[in-house]
């Protein structure tokens, strides 16, 4: 059953009760919340995601809850619960859905060590994956959103999970987090994209999430072998420019952007080296999606 198959009231009831067991790629999270922003966000962004049986296993038990204090009435705040613990400081209530997303990212990046996890967007075309590693602000989410609006399959906006045995990217198909000017950039570039309501004054500025394309959600069990690595850098007004990057530089960028490279020791080194060996590596500067997306469409047409 998909989230979208549930009537809205039933979805709200499950989230408020024992929790909704939501599958995102290889990860199952039991999500609890009574907050309307969370119910709305899950209904919108995860409509095409699978709900697992209520009594089954969950990798993470999380919740977004209102703390029991007077702040419930004056500038209300919300907390992220993880297995009964509160790993983060509270945030303003309007940021409830964003907090769920950030919390789920934290769960994966800190616990899913069966993968080598790179801070990278990942998209796929014709069975080949493009990795877009980079720190916040590099423009990877914007570029990712642009590409998936033009036929690329979303593997992940934020966390590329590399299978330790094969080096393939395991999809973690979740909403794309857009910040600040990227929100309007995507609205212009892809008016059909479904965006949730922006929330303002977060630590990242204004944030809005984009619903994953339906096909990407439905193909969340199809891995893809990395074929290209591009380090994006957004520069206002810059022409799109794709330049070769040495494989050694690409390796160091992947390692620097990996959350758990050190956890995997020699195995992690060999895995990243294999990924780099079979990938074309680039530095990519861009100033607009209109220029940027055709560049990657062109390299995807090459054998």
């Amino acid at each position: 059953m998909m989230v979208g198959d549930l009537p809205y009231k039933e979805l709200a009831r499950r989230l408020a009760g024992a929790g909704l067991r939501l599958r995102t790629g290889p990860v199952v999270s039991r999500i609890r919340s009574r907050l309307p922003a969370v119910v709305h966000g899950v209904a919108l962004h995860y409509a095409n995601h699978t709900i697992e049986d209520e009594d089954g296993f969950a990798d993470f038990r999380v919740g977004v809850v209102v703390p029991p204090s007077l702040r419930r009435w004056v500038k209300p705040q919300v907390l992220f619960e993880f297995d009964g613990a509160l790993p983060f400081l509270p945030l303003p209530a309007p940021q409830a859905f964003a907090m769920l997303e950030w919390g789920l990212n934290w769960c994966v990046s800190n616990h899913c060590h069966q993968y080598l996890i790179v801070h990278s967007a990942a998209v796929e075309k014709s069975g080949r994956a493009l990795l877009l590693p980079g720190p916040p602000g590099s423009g990877k989410s914007t570029l990712c959103a642009g590409l998936i609006s033009r036929g690329w399959r979303l593997l992940s906006d934020e966390l590329a999970l590399l299978d330790l045995a094969s080096g393939s990217v395991v999809p973690l198909t979740r909403p794309v987090s857009l910040k600040n000017a990227s929100i309007d950039a995507i609205r212009r570039f892809a008016p059909e994209a479904l965006l949730g309501p922006p929330v303002h004054d977060t630590v990242k500025g204004s944030v809005a999430h984009m619903k994953p394309p339906t096909e990407s959600a439905h193909r969340a069990n199809e891995t893809a072998r990395p074929r290209w690595i591009a380090l994006p850098r957004f520069e206002r007004g810059a022409a799109a420019r794709l330049e070769r990057l040495s494989k050694a530089q690409a390796f160091m960028q992947l390692a620097d952007n990996a959350f758990n490279y050190d956890v995997h020791g020699r195995r992690g080194f060999e895995l990243l080296a294999d990924v780099v060996t079979r990938s074309d590596c680039f530095a990519f500067r861009y100033g607009s999606l209109e220029d940027a997306v055709p560049v990657f469409d062109a390299i995807a047409r090459q054998p």
């Binding site: 050694a248 080194f269 780099v276």
Partner: peptide, 14 residues
């Protein structure tokens, strides 16, 4: 552990 590509190397000290 080390790898070489086009004359550049990455080296991991285990």
């Amino acid at each position: 552990s080390w790898r070489e590509w086009d004359g550049e190397f990455v080296v991991r000290d285990e």
